[in-house]
Design a protein around this nucleic acid. Structure first.
Lengths: 149, 149
DNA sequence: CTGCACGCTCAAGTCGACTTGAGCGCAACA
DNA sequence: TGTTGCGCTCAAGTCGACTTGAGCGTGCAG
């Protein structure tokens, strides 16, 4: 069951992406169409599940297309753990990215609610916080002369 | 105090970014150098704080450079609330982005620990979850003929 | 006085992820 | 018998965010 096939425009429509992207993914070998009847692509359930997987990983550049490809095509030639490495690296990237996003979010929310007229230039809270970042960065500039006894 | 000035290469070094990027930001008017002594840029504390702000917002494409510019140069011509709009939009983007990242993270962590040899194709958990996404997407394809009583 | 390090400008190149356009085939419908 | 709609390929274009390269100026150490 569910051995139905869908045309490229149907898939595009219900996954909310342009036809050109699907063809592009096919060119990359990222999402080959299930079969072709006389040069025309048809997609089956297996392909659609992979497409959902791709979307979830790649959506808005979370994971690059190249890495997504490595992660999901995982045909480990039984010699390199490349898939696993990319996997671990991706998880790490995503973690730090979430962290960065939280910082940015806090900053923006502060800007939104800060009573100061121009929070970017006037707000003391922001000035102090960024000042610390700057001082920390500048510290790298003058490595204190190692005071040897 | 702290009225020191730093050359472009010093700033680049301690903020961990190439000189070219600083010049690029200057070209955009995003981070104008404090002053120029005979065509040479010098950066002061105010500029460095702004740079820290830019980094935090823009780091790895969190917020586009254009939006970052709108957010921080906030010279509201006292007629449009464009800054505030971008602010609210950015916060919203970041929220959904964090959400997407959490989904992707869960998926990757599942791939990492799933006992199935090839989790992408064999794991029933994943198959079911993605199957639901697919079914939901496909539902948009055949809008049930509205049964009017 | 000659290098060298560092600075500058302006134009062009790069990279990832697509999109657009030209030109074509094929099936169905008026 | 068009012509309309959908599909195809292949090459080229686009966009954001930089980077690279050519060519030049300036200050100072040897």
């Amino acid at each position: 069951m569910t051995d139905e096939r869908y045309s490229i425009s149907q898939v595009a429509r219900c996954f909310g992406m342009p036809v050109s992207t699907l063809r592009y993914y096919d060119d990359l070998g990222l999402l080959p169409a299930a079969e072709r009847r006389g040069n025309v692509r048809y997609y089956g359930h297996e392909q659609l599940r992979r497409l959902a997987l791709i979307q979830r990983l790649h959506h808005r550049g979370l994971v690059s297309l190249a890495d997504t490809a490595t992660l999901i095509t995982e045909d480990p030639p039984a010699d390199q753990p490349s898939g696993r490495q990319v996997l671990i690296a991706s998880i790490e990237t995503i973690r730090t990215r979430i962290h960065d996003l939280h910082l940015a979010q806090q900053l923006l929310e502060h800007l939104l609610t800060c009573p100061t007229a121009d929070p970017v230039r006037e707000c003391t809270h922001l000035r102090t916080e960024l000042g610390e970042v700057v001082d920390h960065a500048l510290a790298a500039l003058r490595p204190p002369p190692p005071s040897r006894p």
